[in-house]
Design a protein around this nucleic acid. Structure first.
Length: 627
DNA sequence: GCAAGGTC
């Protein structure tokens, strides 16, 4: 019988796929790595007929990239970093996993790649192929690639029966990113550490004269740039005075305040003239000009992605992005929630979501809510979630798998589980419904509006406890055309205020929108620039803000003073690389040209930076003296 | 000792 080895990106996928292909009849063997298992069964592939199959996995990348020995830290002039030979490396864990693959493939006839169907997965597939060929050259030409986007059994069967080949263009694109990130990162990190490390070290009074690392990374710098940018906008902010008119009318024993439709104006005299006009024309009498009443809804959330999870854990639970992602990872490993790294905000149509809701019906906190959704009496019954626009073709939105009851003793995991579950139940609920009334008053030639909301059905809000939507005070009972005596009519002034410092939740949004990092790495970049002492967390009242340090501000301004064509601290460079990678994937550019162009650019920037390096030191010294 | 990207 022919022998087929299948390799997935992680054990959870290997286990699930083996279970489906074998009809639940597979046997499990250990591998040298405790997280990796080998699953044996028989299956009939189109290319091999009835075969003896071993399904195993890697755990992410199987190889790493580094400069060769001769070009290690301090061993060569920095510019050589841009064209030094690159070697593949393996950590001890990777070595064990590679050994397992080589052993399993030694007597194999076919190799089938089951890594995630995204760009990185394609590259990991290529790493697996290279490793397998080291022990079995005859596999060359007998490598297939399964195309799948979730783990529903019919879908997996279809993938097994319709294999494709690895997409070399996607592999090339990833290799390009790796090489450019490595060379640019290593070169500028060594340069900055040599130039500023001892200076910063002395200033910060760090012990045993240890020099801090001052790193450059294609993601680290734009992340820092966002924070510094906000900081500068606040620092340079000049408040501007404005004037406006506000009127109010009686409402029961209280009043209803109406806002001027012009908002506010920055010219006092204009407002004063308008105010006089109104007063002359109408005295203290206004007229109801319009009354609009309409149903309104507050939408339930979209299915949960990683970025949304991190943003909301930061906003609602005051957890750092790193902490929430780590907790989610643990919950996934324990089998409580689905895979936590996903960009998908649309559920596959044949998923049994009701069964997942049912799972939650025994919970003390939201069990009754879940049960009511399924019972279907009352306005709030199970409704298929809204569909977002993103599908990473690899993982479904984050959702709870089983109820954990009181089974979690780690506080962070408990809170993240609660968030994921409440979010999921909210997704499967009705929108919240209300009624909004808008009244327009005319006073002289000017219009003023007031708005009232009655929440009629809370629906998902009952389980999504962090979101608020409240009934406001009712508008007074008046009809169109009616005249009303004003309780007050005032000309007021105010001034514009600066934006707040950056929150972590805003930073995540900015990074995501600008393509800086991925769902899995955004939290790490934010963590990294704190470790490097470029930014610091600062608590004001109950809110935590991210504030750049002297070093962080100096780096951004220092490079600005040098005047590189594409600023390191802006997202443009990274975005341009991303576009080039897409062109490699579509076959419109080749890897060698893109690498050459990008490395050339960094070489030029390095040349310019080193001739103007004194500007970096000056900037640091100047900012140090005024901070 | 340096990057960013996977994953445990």
């Amino acid at each position: 019988m022919p022998r087929v080895v299948c390799v997935a990106e992680k054990n959870s996928i290997a286990k699930a796929v083996a279970g489906i292909l074998s009809g639940g009849r597979c046997s499990r063997r250990d591998s040298p790595n405790k997280y990796i298992k080998n699953y044996d069964f028989t299956f009939s592939f189109g290319f091999s007929g009835s075969s003896s199959v071993t399904m195993t996995s890697v755990a992410g990348h199987l190889t790493g990239l580094d400069l060769d020995q001769a070009h290690g830290w301090g061993k060569c002039p920095i510019p050589q970093v841009f064209d030094a030979p690159i070697v593949d490396t393996r950590t001890k864990d990777q070595q064990k996993i590679a050994d397992n693959i080589k052993k399993e493939c030694r007597n194999a006839d076919y190799l089938m790649i089951w890594t995630d169907c995204d760009r990185e997965g394609e590259y990991i597939g290529w790493e697996i192929v290279q490793t397998a060929l080291q022990s079995n050259q005859s596999l060359q030409g007998n490598v297939y690639r399964a195309i799948f986007s979730h783990l529903e059994s019919g879908h997996i069967m279809h993938a097994a029966r319709n294999p494709k080949r690895l997409d070399q263009r996607a592999v090339d694109a990833v290799r390009t990113r790796m090489e450019v990130d490595l060379r640019s990162g290593v070169a500028f990190t060594r340069f900055l550490t040599e130039l500023l490390g001892s200076k910063v070290g002395r200033d910060s009074g760090s012990k045993n004269d240890q020099r801090p690392i001052i790193s450059y990374g294609t993601c680290q710098f734009p992340t820092l740039g966002f924070v510094v940018d906000r900081f500068e906008r606040i620092r340079k902010f000049v408040p501007e005075k404005f004037w406006f008119i506000q009127v109010s009318i009686p409402n029961d024993n209280d009043k209803t305040v109406f806002q001027w439709e012009r908002g506010h104006l920055f010219d006092r005299l204009s407002v004063a003239v308008i105010y006089e006009l109104c007063l002359e024309a109408s005295g203290n009498i206004a007229r109801v000009a319009d009354l609009k009443s309409k149903p309104t809804t507050k939408w339930r959330p979209l299915p949960l992605t990683t970025v949304e999870l991190q943003k909301n854990c930061s906003r609602f639970l005051k957890m750092s992005a790193k902490t929430s992602l780590d907790a989610a990872e643990k919950l996934y490993q324990k089998g409580y929630i689905s895979y936590p790294r996903t960009e998908t905000d649309i559920f596959p149509p044949n998923m049994d979501l009701q069964a997942l809701v049912q799972q939650q019906s025994s919970d003390r906190r939201w069990g009754e809510y879940a049960q009511n959704l399924l019972n279907g009496n009352g306005p709030n019954c199970f409704k298929w979630p809204r569909a977002g626009k993103n599908d990473d073709k690899a993982h479904p939105p984050i959702h709870p798998i089983v109820s954990c009851g009181e089974g979690l003793d780690n506080e962070n995991e408990k809170r993240v589980y609660e968030y994921v579950t409440r979010h999921f139940l909210a997704c499967c609920s009705e929108d919240s419904k209300g009624h909004s009334t808008t009244m327009v008053l005319h006073w002289g030639p000017e219009a003023f509006t007031a708005n009232g909301i009655v929440v009629l059905e809370r629906n998902f809000l009952d389980v999504y406890v962090w979101m608020k939507w409240e009934t406001t005070k009712q508008l007074p009972n008046l009809s169109v055309g009616q005249e009303v005596e004003l309780l007050s009519y005032l000309m007021k002034d105010g001034q514009t205020s600066p934006p707040n410092q950056m929150t972590e939740s805003e930073l995540i949004l900015l990074m995501d929108a600008n393509g800086i990092g991925t769902d899995a790495t955004i939290a790490e970049h934010i963590e990294k620039i704190q470790q490097r002492d470029y930014i610091k967390k600062k608590k004001v009242n109950k809110q935590t803000y991210l504030i750049p340090t002297t070093l962080g501000i100096s780096l951004v301004h220092g490079f600005e003073a040098i005047g590189l064509e594409d600023s390191f601290a802006k997202p443009f460079l990274r975005r341009q690389m991303e576009l080039d990678l897409k062109l490699i994937c579509s076959g419109n550019k080749n890897r060698a040209d893109v690498v050459k162009d990008l490395i050339n650019k960094y070489q030029n920037y390095y040349g310019l930076t080193s001739t103007k390096q004194v500007k970096l030191i000056e900037t640091y010294t100047n900012i140090k003296s005024i901070m």
